[in-house]
Design a protein around this nucleic acid. Sequence first.
RNA 1: GCGCCUGUGGUGAAAUUGGUAGACAUACCAGACUUAGGAUCUGGCGCCGAGAGGCAUGGGGGUUCGAGUCCCUCCAGGCGCACCA
Length: 913
Amino acid sequence: MEYNFTEIENKWRVYWKENKSYHVEIDTKKPKFYVLDMFPYPSGAGLHVGHPLGYIASDIFARYKRLDGFNVLHPMGFDSFGLPAEQYAIETGQHPTKTTEVNIARYKSQLDNIGFCFDWDREVRTSDPSYYKWTQHIFSLLFEAWYNPNSNKAEPITSLIEKFSTTGYQQISTADWNSFSQKQQQDTLMQYRLAYQAESYVNWCEALGTVLANDEVVNGVSERGNHPVVRRLMTQWFLRITNYAERLLDGLDALQYPESLKEMQRNWIGKSVGAEIQFAINNEELADENKTIRIFTTRPDTIFGVSFMVMAPELDLIDTITTAEQQQAIAEYKKYVSSRSEIERMADKKISGCFTGAYAMHPFTKQEIPIWISEYVLAGYGTGAIMAVPAGDERDYKFAKHFNIAIPNIFEGVDIAENTCTDKNVTLCISDFLNGLKAKDAIHAAIKKIEAETIGTAKTMYKFRDAGFSRQRYWGEPFPIIHTNDGIAKLVKELPVQLPHAETYSHGPNGKGPLANLTEWVQTADGLRETDTMPGYAGSSWYYLRYADPNNENEFASREATDYWNQVDVYIGGAEHAVGHLLYSRMWCKVLFDLGKISFDEPYKKIINQGMIGGSSRFVYRVKDSNHFVSFGLKDNYVTNALHVDVNICDNLELDIEKFKEWRAEYTTATFELEDGKYICGTAFEKMSKSKYNVVNPDDIITKYGADTFRMYEMFLGPIELSKPWDTKGIEGVHRFLRKFWRLFYTDNGELKITSDAATNEELKTLHKHIKKITWDMEHFSFNTSIAQFMIVTNELAAMNCTKKEILEAVLITLAPFAPHITEELFHAIGNTTSILDAQFPKCNESYLVENTFLYPIAINGKARTEMEFAFDASAEAVQAEVLKNEIVQKWLEGREVKKFIFVKGKMINVVG
RNA sequence: GCGCCUGUGGUGAAAUUGGUAGACAUACCAGACUUAGGAUCUGGCGCCGAGAGGCAUGGGGGUUCGAGUCCCUCCAGGCGCACCA
């Protein structure tokens, strides 16, 4: 009987579905294991072969854990709010609710085709009101919480109100608080809430008609669509994620994330430790006003090297301090700066600046220091002003050279005529109380002195900003917020706030989103509804919690469920979410933990980033101004244009000419010049996309080879974290393997050849070697080498003509996570009546692997020359005597004396002569 | 510019603690079976060399009895950050 994968796979798909084989419930008798995939955005294009790579790996791992005795949670859902659905709606007039529905159905059928063990009873969709009700609920918790720096955690806002009204807090005394109007009190609280509204410069994208978070802007253009992004002052919602900077940073150490991912997060948070120092402004007119410039520096040790100050051109203080003579020049420079877009500033880093005419006073030497403004100092970082130390900072150095400002050398014995010096191991000079200290030691000494003299304080700065949480779009979660007539933002208690139906999705007035057009919805008895919607990362920041208890109507998830399923043990997904999604969901987790809603403060214990599968594009070469195509090897003889051709009409590199002629009407009359009777295409590794005609649909592969082959081939391509092009060549090898595996069980005539005879020692050894290898690979996510091992064990058992049930059944179970359909079929064929899903993963019995002898490679002077077999317990002396007698050893020693004899038991022998 | 990662046959790759480099596939070559082969099976397959043997893990250097693996340095490719004071 031939291996009929289509029949087998259809049969078991139905069986698993009807028997709810993948349904899981809390079972306190079993240890739990939570394997999660980053859920997909259900786009209209459906899945291509690149998408399932991570899903296959997690599916294999989840199945393995189940066989290994764990109660495994392995859910799937859809991140179904977002821009593309809305843009598709604008283009086609179809409502996003409808298209989302259709796309999800398509995704689910494609995923089921591959044979994933998702518990669909736990499916979540972020755009479903029963889900976003709880996204809004968690937003409400964030709104009703503040970060208490003393307890170092989030607390209900009521604890802050209590502080204000009993003891006062920070700049606000009890008396102040009590004298505030309701509006003033609410405005004050808004400055502490974890979800807050504020006016701020945001990334505004005109083309998309919305603001974007920092991680959604790349090099001054939108990540999605590459549209220009400008800074714009707008009232927006934000999450106070910066309060969690230190904990987000600290938490990384204990997590099993790829090092590169941790590095990206650290980079994004951008912690720098230093001091904030005040410089008095040495200006008679301002003397009474007590004005100072506050600067941030990581190098307070270089304070005696300051020769000028620089402020960001956007700072208000500039207008106050600029002298009459410099007014004109400063105004012109500011105009120049504001004329430059973000992109221009980044592309063209020429040195520019302008002197304000004002001077600051050095806090120690009391010398006058000129104050400049320049675009190289950013308003958004630190205090927006710096003390410039050209001797110790590259940018300051270039600026000083350019404008001919003094470069005092504060480093003993260092030549700074040509270059700045950033080495912290040099000794300081002309630095008063810091003289003789190494720079790295002087940092601490300088801060101590600065604090003692009350001219500044030690300070830690973070690069990242609070996360923008508003989008001026339709297809997202509405905020549960109503703005009362006296301008107070109030939570809506009744959730969900349903996303109202809209027929059109054009912008509202004044940069507002489409919801602003729905006046009936906006106007309520209590005031006006918030018309922004939440960003894409809102729903994905907590979905892993909802899977634990997806149908709960009273809570986002019961405590019992989140306590049991707990943290995600393994989270698999792309590295592109390293700083966005992962940081946000880590923050939400910490907030929920602080507020006592869940029992852990990190969502994901371990993360694996699967590589991207790119497309392997195919090209044909058309001779210029003709319909004549020449094969790849001949193209250099002509002037040709390379044209993308659909990979699906090529057999590897060879073009199927008939299909090509049918592909496009213009090619029906095409003529060809072949090499060896074939038309060979050119290739390139590119992103898989429709426009490059290199998209391969998993459904097609599955029709041709079956899901089991597809799953195994994706794993066989290489290590899971590596990016690689999809190339269908090679899939035959994996398919051949499955057919060969089938023939271990069945004769060519379709007779089962399994026997219940006892296995030989040799067979047992082969089996247990196999179990050991597979187990190791599983625990290390080394699935490509597992496939190799399956091929090895199959080849070995076939060579032995092994038909023992004892052996084959165990191998079958080890293969089940990879190839669930064929193994389920064979498991039943050999007499089992229960599903292989509930079998037990075999354990390696080391006693079968014990060897009495070892075949040692014998090296002479490090080069392997021969092999000799010795008993494991042979003494070193006996081995040495025997080895030295050996003819080949004698020959290679060429009569030299043995200087050294290296004997590594069970490994190798090296004779040095 | 800075940080992280990766460089191994024609191709995808393996080598788990420093111990026989190239497992397992694919491509290719030769052969068997066959009406047929795009089924199946057998053998070959890093490079040079007739052979003995020599040379080989991006280049160069080092540590070691022994290096793909550790250290230094340079080169190439990928990813991230990029006026962050």
